[in-house]
Amino acid sequence: MERERHETPPAVLSLRDLTVSLPGGAGRFDIVRGVSLDLRRGEILGLVGESGSGKSLTLKAIMRLLPGAMQTRGSVIWKGQDVLAADAGTLRRLRGAEMSMIFQEPMTALNPVLSIGRQIDESLKAHTALDRRARHRRAVELLDLVGIPSAERRLRDYPFRFSGGMRQRAMIAIALACDPQLVLADEPTTALDVTIQDQILQLLLRLRDELGLSVIFVTHDLGVVSEICDRTAIMYAGEIVETGATRTVLSAPLHPYTQGLLRSMPGAASADGRLNAIPGQPPQPAARAPGCAFAPRCAMAGPACSVTDPVLGPVLGSVRAGHASACLRATDLIAEGGQP
């Protein structure tokens, strides 16, 4: 399934130095710090991290959905245009028509007093010139596409009539209504059971192949990432600490945090029957010390780590193209074989 990419296609979405900050205490502090990413056409990029790592904020920043108190700096280039600088009209056209979003909790993201059909229709009305009959046809087609049986009848149903999995399918249908090229998925399967999650993941893979979607998939589950993401970026304390092809990142991680995450999963237990938990807690964004944010919890941290801020970059000696890590001791990790 690994896609051949000898001539790397150009990125459709590029984040450069994306930073989100909040006012607080003395001045502002950053909750997303200098995130740079490229997403290519037809690619699923996993954005992985624990709660508070800034992964959802990054996603919302791309869509300009952050509350006013949060300041966004850097650039989000979508097909050559900076989304962060776009005016209200352009933004409205982009949202829904070119990029759309799938949320974690479909029950709260769907409007409970409008039928599913109406909600799809609304999006079509706003972004297309289709007439009523054509919009209806399109809506039926969409429910078919996401695998909701007897679509014609289900259009008239309200969200509460749908089960969790069906609701998530309905939300995906709404997100796809106007043929967006970019889908931002914010933990879309976290609230679902594993068997339903499996169905939704398969659906996303199929839609990506059929429609050529580009997807950023935010999750905390490395298993899910392994299943569907072509590339993966690991976030910690607002920064990307490692990025590369999913298979590479998960099998030969070059950041101690990624290694720690993989090791702390049950199934990778140490000899004494205990899990290798990462000690301590992630830092509070307001109380961030200089140097590497992970250093206080890192077994490998040296004196330099609490002074120098590591920069995300290719690791000297790594044979895998596109594999980057933000760790001062990444080269030592290669020497150790990069085993998780």
Partner: peptide, 16 residues
Amino acid sequence: AAPEVGLSRGRHDSAM
């Protein structure tokens, strides 16, 4: 159905 790390199965038929 449970996703496993290192088990990138690609597209498959859902187990259920």
